[in-house]
Structure formats: C-alpha cells, structure tokens
C-alpha cells in the first residue's frame, strides 16, 4: 500500500513536477493515509537516497538532484505545521537539542528531518541551519545551553571541521551530548576522528534517545 504511494510520488518527482509532488505529499498526510514518520522514512528519505540518475552526463544529474532536493525541502517546510500539531499532543521531554550542519555543509535535508523527528519525540528541537561556522555554533551552544548537539555531515571533507567543532564543544561544554550523523560517517575511519556520544544511523532510534545516550 505504502509502496504505491511512494511510486506515485516518485513519478511526479521524476517528471520534476513540483506542484504535483508537493500537492500529493501533503494530500497523503491530510487524508491520514500515511503518518508523518512514514512520510519521512518511507517516502521522502528513499526518494533522495535512492535517486538514480540514468543520464550519463554528470552535470545534468547534479541539477536534477538539486531540483529534487528543493521540492522535498518545500514539502518538509510545509509539513512543519503538522509537526506543531503533533507536539501539542505529546508530553515534552524537557530537553533541548540543537540541530545543524557545519560550515561549508549545504546538504541540510537530513538535518531538517532529524530536527522534525526530535520534535515529534518530545524534544525542544532547534534547527540552526546549514553551513554554520564553528564560532557561531559555539556561541549558540553558549546561549541556548542545549542538552544535545546534533551535527549532520554529508561531504566527507567536512569531517575536518566537524572534528574541530566536536573537540571545542567537548572541551568547553563537556555536558553537551554530541550526536553525529550523515553520509560522511559511512566512510572508513570517519567516526573515529570526531568526539561524539551517539552516532545516529537510524531515525527511529531518536524516540528512545535519553539525554543523548542510547538505551
């Protein structure tokens, strides 16, 4: 059943039909055909990660991917209304989590989805944004005093700066739990380079995260 929704959605995306894609996704939620979690995990995420470009010209694939990402970002932002709605129905965990991408990291879809998931799990999720310079992260942590800091990294070169961020946060704010995630950490040795408390590889585990520690 859900597979059919996904295939239909994918067809609109493949045609780069922005209006139809967004319309269809919102309709699925409105008509409660899928839950928000299902929408994130089974429709939006796979539509990005399983993106296969048959075109041999690499440049064409790149702008196609960018357009697809843009459509999905619009959907995600539109869905936030439903996230607010859900938040009111569940008890707050009283914990703050700051979600962001380090500097030069522009792939923020993952981070947005993660921040929504945290919100859906009863956390006070603050999404800072993509491409956040190290100093701004440090001052945000200083001001917001979050319980957790979630860093989403896609490009593996950004491990370099992520390492610096995690080292500084850990030395200045050792109580802040650091969660790392994203494609960059699938590379060999990448995880061992940074200081972290939890590596988030499965969004469904967010609900069971307690103060940054897995149960």
């Amino acid at each position: 059943m859900k597979k059919t929704y996904y295939n239909t959605f994918l067809k609109y995306l493949d045609d780069e039909n922005r209006d139809a894609s967004i319309d269809y996704a919102l309709q699925l939620i409105q008509e409660q055909k899928v839950t928000l979690e299902e929408m994130y995990l089974e429709i939006l995420t796979p539509s990005l990660t399983e993106f296969f470009c048959s075109n041999e010209d690499e440049e064409i694939c790149i702008w196609k991917e960018h357009e697809r990402t843009s459509i999905i970002r619009t959907i995600l932002e539109s869905l936030y209304v439903y996230v607010i709605h859900r938040k009111k129905q569940i008890p707050s965990k009283g914990k703050t989590v700051m979600v962001l991408c380090p500097s030069e990291e522009y792939h923020e879809i993952g981070a947005i989805i993660v921040s929504h998931f945290f919100a859906l799990s009863g956390y006070d999720a603050k999404y800072i944004g993509a491409n956040t310079p190290k100093n701004d992260i440090v001052s945000a942590v200083k001001a917001l005093k979050p319980d957790m800091l979630a860093l989403s990294v896609t490009n593996y070169y950004n491990i370099v700066v992520t390492k610096k961020i995690t080292e500084e946060i850990k030395s200045k704010y050792p109580d802040v739990k650091i969660i790392v995630g994203g494609q960059a950490f699938s590379h060999k040795d990448a995880l061992s380079q940074v200081q972290y408390d939890y590596h988030l590889s499965d969004l469904t585990t967010i609900a069971s995260l307690e103060g940054g520690k897995s149960i």
Binding site: I159, V160, K188, A190
Partner: peptide, 13 residues
Amino acid sequence: EIKDGRINLDITK
C-alpha cells in the same frame, strides 16, 4: 590532516 607535526585526521572515502 597534519597538525603541529602530528597526524590529526586521516579519513578514506
């Protein structure tokens, strides 16, 4: 990454 004469970071794609 070399930092202060030591290997600070070493990652492979």
